[in-house]
Amino acid sequence: MSAFSGILRHEIGMSLRRKGLWIAYGLLFVFHTVLLFSPPPIGEMIKGEVIAKGEVWQVAGRFLLACNVFFPIVAGILSADRVRRDFRLGVRELQDSTPLSRPVYVLAKYLGALASSLLPLFLWVMGIAAFMAIIGRAHGSMLYAVPMAFLAITVPAFAFVVAFSLACPMVMPLSIYQILFTGYWFWANFIPPKLFPTLNGTLLTPSGIFAQQVFFGGHLSLNGAVRHTPADAVANLAVLVTCSAAALFLLDRYLGHLARRA
């Protein structure tokens, strides 16, 4: 347990101290804040418009769905070197010589990378929700609708992305993974199925559209995807969790294979 919490704390601390993480998130925070608080055509703030209590859940869902367009790209690209760098710097070899078990290492590394990707975004979305409530632009219930939407829409997408970003670069060059991942994110989430064969609209869609439509009354679908049922949303979450667990399991097996070969 102490080994787990040690690696977890170290991973979170190390990731959060990365200059690149704050620059990347900072650029996107500025971009989204400008869109949120500028009048049309640049943004969507209409003067005098107040988000009523009945609309809060829908707005929170839409807000977090919009965050899932670009933020997972940052999380995926930045998490991609978290396990690889342990090999590059020789840390993994050292860890192999300690009683630390491999599954504990993989789980702690994963949760650490996930937490450090989610934390800045969570603080920012809560800041936005609080600010909107304080200036009277939104009803106070925004303050609990946003964390709920964060949990249902953002966390599963990030959990999926980070799991694959830790595992895949172990079997391919980092630059290749980053290209494939960026292309994948656009192809699997935003290309309309009518235009080109895609995973968009299937249970493997990690954009959060299922949860947004079902739990947050989203009437609009991205690129004309059909409206989903609660069973679809639960199945989507289950598929994403299963895929993430499978990626981590394979990573664990692969690390074992590397340790045996060393």
Partner: peptide, 21 residues
């Protein structure tokens, strides 16, 4: 500028995606 390859990869990837979206 970031003295990190990941920073450049992120900028190129994010600009590509933002421009497409």
């Amino acid at each position: 500028a970031g003295a990190q390859t990941t920073m450049g990869a992120f900028l190129a990837g994010a600009v590509w995606l933002v421009q497409l979206m």
